[in-house]
Nucleic acid binder design. Structure first.
Lengths: 153, 153
DNA sequence: CCATATTCAATTGCGAACAATTAAATGTGA
DNA sequence: TCACATTTAATTGTTCGCAATTGAATATGG
């Protein structure tokens, strides 16, 4: 016979999981970004890398990884695709031959101007006031940082 | 010469992006879940599918997809892996031969008991009160739903 | 100075995620 | 009834994401 819904099951119910809220919201953002980023020829993770580089380029892969919480297994092929698209250049550091420095090309710099309208499109899609979004962002970042603190033990 | 940091760049700064907060929080959750789910032999997306099935099984792939915002391109191979792990059975519906119904095996049902301690481990890692987490979850779900509403135009 | 450890990127292999297409089953309108 | 559209999974191909390993460069201790 069918097991009836019990209060003991509440912690396992999908709709009670904050992780699923976050997981599904991330995918929803991805889907909203898709058509906007298609016009720039970027995927969402590539866009994040470009955001980092637009703030400061000529940085080692490791710095990008620490900023985005990604490792070389993700970044190396991604950066090779950005290089193939002529948006970045990858060169071994002369001071430390282990490092690969990532620099923007002229095209990479220029793409920043085409990207300027993206944030406001996202803001419109989120249908939310800026102060509310900032407050949510700060809460989510604080949660993320507490989770990441647990991982390092 | 180096372009100096300008107020006009604020919308493009990584730390101002709520999407990145959500994106990086999702990855942080994944990393916290990893060791817990390894003990169950599940990945995080597989765990989400099991959560759905523990609520109600014998459901078509499409229902699982609507619940999790995933399509058959993701679910078909994932469900085949759960089938290979003897956690679910996949059978064509006799009423509608287009549908594949997903049912839990005895092992699949039994795994629910082993999963009961997972939510409290996550709660501990989040280092946050339940009411605060519930409030955040509701805000994030509301944001996700507004974003998804835009996608359907 | 040398053996050892550490750092860094690249590589390999697996599991998502999704767009686009395919194929089969079912539904609908003339 | 029959042509046509819709629904549903499966498939293919590309891109992440990460664990684990490799190999080269650099740092460190004795």
């Amino acid at each position: 016979m069918p097991r009836k819904s019990s209060a003991a099951d509440a912690p396992l119910r999908l709709d009670n999981q904050i992780c699923f809220a976050v997981y599904s919201a991330a995918h929803a953002f991805n889907r909203v970004y898709k058509p906007l980023l298609d016009r720039l020829g970027l995927t969402y993770p590539q866009y994040l890398v470009m955001l980092v580089l637009w703030e400061r380029d000529d940085v080692p892969v490791k710095d990008i990884g620490e900023r985005l919480f990604l490792d070389s297994g993700t970044l190396t092929p991604l950066l090779k695709r950005l290089e193939a698209a002529h948006l970045v250049r990858r060169t071994r550091s002369s001071e430390d031959e282990r490092q690969v420095l990532i620099a923007l090309t002229a095209q990479g710099h220029a793409l920043k101007e085409k990207a300027r309208n993206v944030p406001q499109s996202i803001l419109a899609a989120s249908d939310c006031s800026v102060p509310e979004l900032v407050a949510m962002k700060d809460e989510i970042v604080a949660l993320r940082d507490r989770l990441n603190a647990v991982i390092g033990e």
